[in-house]
Computed example of a mutant assay.
Amino acid sequence: MTLAARRGDLRGAGSADAVARGRPPPVRTPYARRVSDWPKARLHVVTGKGGTGKSTVAAALALALAGHGKNVLLCEVEGRQGIARMFDVDPLPFEERRLTSGLPDAGGRAGAVHALHIDPESALLEYLALYYKLGRAGRALDRFGIIEFATTIAPGVRDVLLTGKIYEAVDRNSRNKGATTYDAVVLDAPPTGRIVQFLNVSEQVAGLAKVGPIRSQADTMMGLFRSARTVVHLVTVLEEMPVQETGDGIAELMAADLPVGGVVTNLLRPQDLPAPALAAARSGTLDAEAVRADLEGAGLGTEDALVEDLLGLARDHADRRELEETQRTRVAGLGRPSYELPRLTGGVDLGALHDLARALREQGMA
């Protein structure tokens, strides 16, 4: 069963019937919007197994949230410059920069999406400048390589620095004068297998600092990360390993008392064949002569080898769809709000990101 059938409040009974018959649901009005499932969230953390498209989902979510004139900050912490590639801009420095307008709401009002590439060395220099007034002295330490040395021998400190900058972006204070105040922050986070370790910074520094400013900062950040103002969304695809890792990630987040958000099923394949045709393809009973007639009507070849190849492709497609439906049922059983996004055949550009943002907003994620 698809998301449309599971969540009848989105499309109505007619659409659920259409899905059951194997046809795509009707096109909905642009910019339609459900009430957000996460009205209290200020920090949206997006994680997922590698290859599921979590960076794309994070960018689309930022665009979806930037309506009603709101400012949204999209952050990345893995050093890949994925935001710059998706939005076709120069590599981002450690500096908040306006990227583009967000997704307009029904009244045509759009906010702005800003971006920030966070690296631990720059985060530490800013921390020293803000809290210890070590401007030039901090840069001198960087030249001697002390900062890189410190973040290498103490990985927990590295995560505290990265998450500390995210915390500062959510809870702006007087120390960072003139900085933009954001209505929401979206984090393109590390993969599912490392997300609890990354966010659970208080545990990370337990063996490094029992007291002092680093320990105090870690404890303060955990107050945000474990509150209703933070939500951790997980991205998956309809394959066994990513769905299993998503379920494991949800269990680990809950065990660490970190707030679990929704599950985004990404890269969905088009569902062009109706259910009877899929059943016939799986059983090998598709009408070969009907296929031959369709080829002839399209002005294509009708030789036996081509017809057999097409029947084989249809059988493979039907088998794949059956496996995907099994995984979709597993996702539905995870007990979290779920959202679905299609595979982008033309690649990821700003127009495609806006389409994905619209889909997330219509389904209630933003």
Rank of each mutant, 00 (worst) to 15 (best):
33 R>F: 03
219 D>T: 13
301 G>R: 13
67 G>C: 12
354 H>W: 02
325 E>C: 01
19 V>M: 12
79 G>K: 06
281 A>V: 07
219 D>A: 13
77 V>F: 06
193 G>L: 11
257 D>E: 15
143 R>A: 12
329 T>F: 08
340 E>R: 03
265 T>D: 04
105 D>M: 11
362 E>Q: 15
251 A>Q: 10
357 A>N: 00
185 V>A: 04
143 R>S: 10
6 R>K: 14
306 L>M: 13
120 P>F: 03
234 L>G: 00
137 A>L: 14
65 L>V: 06
40 K>D: 13
135 G>T: 10
5 A>G: 05
293 A>D: 10
66 A>F: 01
122 S>I: 00
196 V>A: 09
150 A>P: 02
111 G>T: 04
187 L>T: 06
197 Q>N: 11
132 Y>G: 01
98 R>T: 10
172 R>P: 09
175 R>W: 11
58 A>D: 04
99 L>Q: 02
160 V>N: 02
181 T>F: 07
125 L>G: 05
132 Y>S: 14
150 A>G: 09
6 R>F: 05
172 R>Q: 12
83 I>E: 03
129 A>G: 12
7 R>P: 00
354 H>P: 00
322 E>D: 14
163 T>I: 13
36 S>V: 05
41 A>M: 01
250 I>F: 02
12 G>Y: 07
178 G>M: 06
345 T>Y: 07
4 A>S: 11
216 S>M: 13
58 A>Y: 06
57 V>T: 11
320 R>D: 09
294 D>E: 13
218 A>T: 03
62 A>L: 02
343 R>M: 11
141 L>N: 00
330 R>I: 01
34 R>W: 03
218 A>L: 05
79 G>Q: 04
272 D>M: 14
102 G>N: 04
233 H>S: 09
135 G>C: 00
148 E>C: 00
65 L>G: 07
319 D>W: 00
257 D>V: 11
56 T>G: 01
300 L>T: 01
186 V>R: 03
332 A>Q: 10
205 V>L: 15
328 R>A: 15
296 E>A: 15
276 P>F: 08
16 A>C: 02
140 A>M: 12
200 N>D: 15
92 L>E: 02
346 G>A: 13
59 A>R: 02
280 A>G: 05
267 L>M: 14
138 G>K: 04
43 L>D: 00
259 P>M: 05
290 A>G: 10
134 L>C: 11
167 Y>M: 06
235 V>H: 09
269 R>E: 10
248 D>A: 14
329 T>M: 10
23 R>W: 08
9 D>W: 06
82 G>R: 12
282 R>A: 15
93 P>D: 13
124 L>V: 13
16 A>E: 11
157 V>G: 01
27 V>P: 07
130 L>V: 15
73 L>G: 05
352 A>K: 03
186 V>E: 01
332 A>I: 02
120 P>M: 05
18 A>Q: 14
53 G>V: 03
181 T>Q: 12
118 I>A: 08
323 L>C: 06
141 L>C: 06
348 V>N: 03
54 K>I: 07
